[in-house]
Design a protein around this nucleic acid. Structure first.
Lengths: 204, 204
DNA sequence: TCTAATTTTGACCAATTGGTTAAATTAAAC
DNA sequence: GTTTAATTTAACCAATTGGTCAAAATTAGA
């Protein structure tokens, strides 16, 4: 058997499936559309991934690992908090700009199967405890205000994700659907989110 | 013709459709499921709303008006900013707790038809300009920091909506899927979001 | 009460969709 | 080169789904 050929087809399928699933969701995605985008026969799709659900699960796992990128390495770096936060927000929003449908996809499909979600999180290597500990240390060092460290993290993520997930809405409501103006707004947020958070948590 | 009966059936359909659409989305929703939930025949569904798309559009408009509740009246009240913000966050999160699928529904289905989205927003009576002006006045009065007023509003909404939209994720990652602990967390946020925002924007 | 309009229903339909199968093609093993 | 196994394809299938239709039931109006 030629591994090269097999890997190639499988890879093509995974890329195509990710595109279609992220845009249309599980229910809106069509196996035929995925086959077309991969440039293969629909039967071949079922040859590699027996059912739509199995293919979807594979994609969900793959996508989930992308949404929490080098988050952990950043948190564990020994940069000062200000720079750490700035770097995180910037690369995170960068990634979201390239994959604007990603947040909504996760948020929507997350509710499909709670047990599966739990297993995906466990397998993803994301360790919120470690991030919380990082913030706790900064609190004990008197650098930032005492508060629930989970809340700090969730606030940062919320401020980063929401304006992209709600892009079309914000674009229409605040920028008369001018995409350039909206993109500039998001671009600026790479800096202002950090300021906003630091102004709130830093002990002056 | 008996208006009472007609209104009753139509109302039953609208309620059932809202439940099904919000949980399953446009693609995942089944006309049969809506008919069942409304306790009527599927043909009757098509008698009142000719197509699935027409029914969906009616629901989207209805739901959209719920997600920005008495927002405008709150903004226009002459309470001091601190109380205004506190009241908004509290009632807003209250509403979201009762309709946890609502944000994801809007975020997902928003991309289906941009023109329709724009028309819905225009018709919804939400006026972001007026809210921006309110923040601008507070800036000119030297009460809060000078910044893009749109950003203030979006940050408040992001901090309120995201932790509910991402509920299952947060529940698993931070609370070992303990719903009670998660709910307490959200409950506390009714206060802490306000503090978080005020700490950041207030001029001390 | 009788009639016309409206509302409700059950049976039905065409199109779509996920999935199968058997045959054909390609690659690997000997 | 022949055989064997893996990959790819075209044709097909059963189930689901949005939607229709004609008849039945209910209501309104005279």
């Amino acid at each position: 058997m030629n591994d090269l050929k097999k890997d190639n087809t499988e890879e093509k399928i995974l890329i195509a499936a990710q595109n279609v699933f992220i845009e249309k969701g599980m229910d809106g995605a069509r196996m035929q559309a995925i086959a077309d985008e991969a440039g293969i026969n629909k039967a071949l799709l079922h040859y590699y991934f027996r059912t739509k659900e199995k293919l979807f699960n594979a994609i969900f796992i793959k996508v989930f690992s992308q949404i929490f990128p080098n988050l952990m390495t950043m948190v564990l770096s020994d940069l000062p908090l200000e720079e750490k936060l700035g770097a995180f927000v910037e690369t995170y929003i960068d990634m979201l700009q390239k994959n604007p449908f990603l947040p909504t996809f996760i948020l929507k499909e997350m509710n499909r199967n709670p047990d599966f979600l739990a297993s995906v999180i466990k397998g993803s290597g994301v360790n919120p405890q470690e991030i919380s500990n990082m913030f706790k240390k900064e609190m004990e060092a008197g650098k930032i205000k005492r508060m629930d460290p989970r809340e700090v993290l969730i606030n940062i993520i919320a401020l980063s994700i929401f304006p992209i997930a709600a892009g079309p809405l914000i674009s229409v409501m605040f920028f008369e659907n001018d995409k350039t103006a909206y993109n500039e707004f998001i671009e600026k947020r790479k800096k202002t989110i950090t300021e906003f958070v630091l102004d709130s948590i830093l002990l002056k």
